Amino acid sequence: MSAPQDPGLQPERTELSWRRTLLALAVGALVSVRVLPPVLGGWTVATGLLGVLAAAVLWLLARRRHASVAAVFRGSVAATAMPGGGLLLALTVFTAVGALLGLGYAVLLRAG
């Protein structure tokens, strides 16, 4: 098996993909702040701002993960376990909770 073509670039590509994902989350939250209050009420502003805050926190965690993985690729830290599973779990839980809350509100809005 040959060595990778671009040693050390994989963490950079992963960090860039996390950045795009969290930018999309922040933009979606900001759009919801702008568009949804007339339809769903004023509480959507707080929810949208919570989404922006969550994107910022996840971005900081992604930067920390990138630094850890880059250190492993540079060889300055022994590779015991690759970090980052918690970051993916946090993003998944945040997205699932938001989707379930939105679905529940839509069902209640339609029923009432």
Rank of each mutant, 00 (worst) to 15 (best):
T95C: 08
A78Q: 13
T92V: 09
A78C: 07
A78D: 13
E15F: 14
V97T: 11
L36V: 04
A3S: 13
A67M: 11
V39F: 12
W18V: 02
L91N: 08
G86H: 00
A3C: 08
A67R: 15
V27G: 00
S17K: 13
L91V: 05
G75W: 01
V93M: 08
A67D: 15
A55I: 00
A79C: 10
A70E: 04
E12L: 15
F73K: 05
A71C: 03
V69H: 02
A79G: 10
V45P: 02
T80F: 07
R63I: 07
L103P: 01
V107A: 13
V107L: 14
G42S: 10
V69L: 10
T92S: 14
V31C: 11
M1Y: 10
M82Y: 10
L9C: 10
R63Q: 11
P37I: 02
V35D: 10
R20S: 14
M1L: 12
A70M: 02
V27P: 00
G41L: 07
G84L: 04
L101E: 09
D6G: 06
V33A: 05
L50G: 14
L36Y: 03
R63L: 11
S32K: 12
E15A: 15
V33F: 00
G8H: 00
R19T: 14
V45K: 09
R34T: 15
V31F: 13
V33Y: 00
Q5P: 04
W18C: 06
